[in-house]
Design a protein around this nucleic acid. Sequence first.
DNA 1: GATGAATGAGGGTTCATTCAT
DNA 2: TATGAATGAACCCTCATTCAT
Lengths: 193, 193, 193, 193
Amino acid sequence: MKSNKPKYKQIIDAAVIVIAENGYHQAQVSKIAKQAGVADGTIYLYFKNKEDILISLFQEKMGSFIEKIRKGITGKETAAEKLLVMVESHFNILSEDHNMAVVTQLELRQSNKELRLKINDVLKGYFQLVDEILHFGMETGEFDPNLDIRVSRQMIFGTVDEIVTTWIMNEEKFDLVALAPSVHQLLIKAVSI
Amino acid sequence: MKSNKPKYKQIIDAAVIVIAENGYHQAQVSKIAKQAGVADGTIYLYFKNKEDILISLFQEKMGSFIEKIRKGITGKETAAEKLLVMVESHFNILSEDHNMAVVTQLELRQSNKELRLKINDVLKGYFQLVDEILHFGMETGEFDPNLDIRVSRQMIFGTVDEIVTTWIMNEEKFDLVALAPSVHQLLIKAVSI
Amino acid sequence: MKSNKPKYKQIIDAAVIVIAENGYHQAQVSKIAKQAGVADGTIYLYFKNKEDILISLFQEKMGSFIEKIRKGITGKETAAEKLLVMVESHFNILSEDHNMAVVTQLELRQSNKELRLKINDVLKGYFQLVDEILHFGMETGEFDPNLDIRVSRQMIFGTVDEIVTTWIMNEEKFDLVALAPSVHQLLIKAVSI
Amino acid sequence: MKSNKPKYKQIIDAAVIVIAENGYHQAQVSKIAKQAGVADGTIYLYFKNKEDILISLFQEKMGSFIEKIRKGITGKETAAEKLLVMVESHFNILSEDHNMAVVTQLELRQSNKELRLKINDVLKGYFQLVDEILHFGMETGEFDPNLDIRVSRQMIFGTVDEIVTTWIMNEEKFDLVALAPSVHQLLIKAVSI
DNA sequence: GATGAATGAGGGTTCATTCAT
DNA sequence: TATGAATGAACCCTCATTCAT
């Protein structure tokens, strides 16, 4: 029985599983290869080196993560609704993919500075999304026109990120998605007039 | 000329310098020993293992960090003032100690999950401080009596932490302390009625 | 536009170029295949394995090398003249083919003992040529009738080979062919009565 | 039972044995360490890397090789005698140390260009010795005053080296030392007037 | 208490060769 | 014939920790 998934995706998915199960520093290339069902050398036909797997992983996953959120907020009419959908989606997506949550929130942050800088580049897409919502809210008059966009964005991302991290560190013992409304309420109050 | 500092502190200070200058993954025990002016083996008379150095480092530094902040907020009369002092102190202390900022915000976060769990234990002292301010504000009627304490605390810590991290990742190119008022204003609006 | 050269020669020529340009240890089969304009697998339709390429290369090139020299000395009347032509030809041929010179003098000598033994087999054709000149000189009375043929041959080959190697190691900065007369003179004195 | 040899020498001697017995490309650091009776890591307390072992090996062995020969020729009165002693010593030393002979004549020549250049540096000490004998002979009138020193030296070294290599490639089946007189005679005739 | 030489486990990556198409 | 994607064995070096002095 052959897998029809192209090997590139196959390897990235394997990496997520292996990192989630073994931790960043115990995610050897050979383990990833075995999980992907390919030979060690095959990895290097699709990725320049181990770091390249991790960056690609983050890009792929975060790319579709952002895309999903963006789709969700597109139809919404008010900035408040958009923000709510963003928080809800963020929590939802990570709730539904335990491995991804562990990998992006905990494991990949153990990487070295160079890799983290590249990861930060990817995160810029998320920051941009937040900025768009903020600008929109300021235009519609929902948000304080004198907001410091940068600080507001850092508050929003910092809050959501901290909550998710805590949730994972607590072994996902509470219902993350259920927190969305109260998180949203706090954030809305902060940026409103 | 021999240092009179007890070797325990000597080694921790050396660790901060070495990690700040070389990064977490390039901070070998032998480098720390050399920086501390002791033999490699001497380290193990004062610390169980390398991880123990890092935890002790975090405990020592975070302990005095929290103490300083606690002192600052003690005299203040309103919860809002306390929160302002907390944010200002937080930014101030890290602004004045570049090495500490780099080590606690960036480098130590590259440690494995186990170590990070222990670091989180130390952070509980900080969380408690935030909780106290929140409770105080709820009692005085400054803050919303229906606040979800945990989420509010995560918002406050997440926001402050994210801003500091961004500041360091940007090579401290902007004035961190100057941001305190607008950060404070956002947070106050979030938790007020 | 396809090359009409049979692929066998095509691959050997590619190997010479790749080895000369990249060195023995950086001359991967895939590089040779790319240089030859064939697929990696095609190599194995014409050669048993990588070693077989190198031996074949040496045989082909050394074969025509010896042939050229043999032609040059055939018409000469005295052993001294023959020896002069041999040295001159040797220097000439390598001077005119930089790649070949590098490959046979430097790169192929990095091969393992087994391959070098096979290379030595090919060199026997050259040794035979020298032996013929020596015998001829001994018969004509030009050379010492009590010569130890084997030692004399090793002197002649060792001398010429050492000079060529030095010339290449010095990046061909001096005129190799111009050395032929003085080399010849030394050798003639050695073997003469 | 502890070895009292300093580990540096211990490791070099082990390297000679391992390379002689297994060949250059099969001489793994772990094998050398095991043969030396030390841990793999210990190697790196005395040598920068694997290449450093090989260069040091060559320097140490070639250094004492040249020293021995130099001592032998010092007392001799004529250039011819000096040359004889040199050839004899060269053959003698290698005859008496099979491993060294294999390592320096065959195995180390498989190293990459960079290492070979460093090996060549060491050989310059030998070349210098030959040059001294040649100059001496030219001064005493034993040798042709118009000798091309460089070519003569290359002849002498090339001849001796080729003979030793052949001897080893033939598994030392003939008596190398016994060849010294006839080799000497040839070389003397070559450089005499 | 203090030293520092010695230990030894562990992993990313290359590349000659194969074989299904 | 020709292809080229896939294979998987093999090795140098680092560094936290120990222990004889």
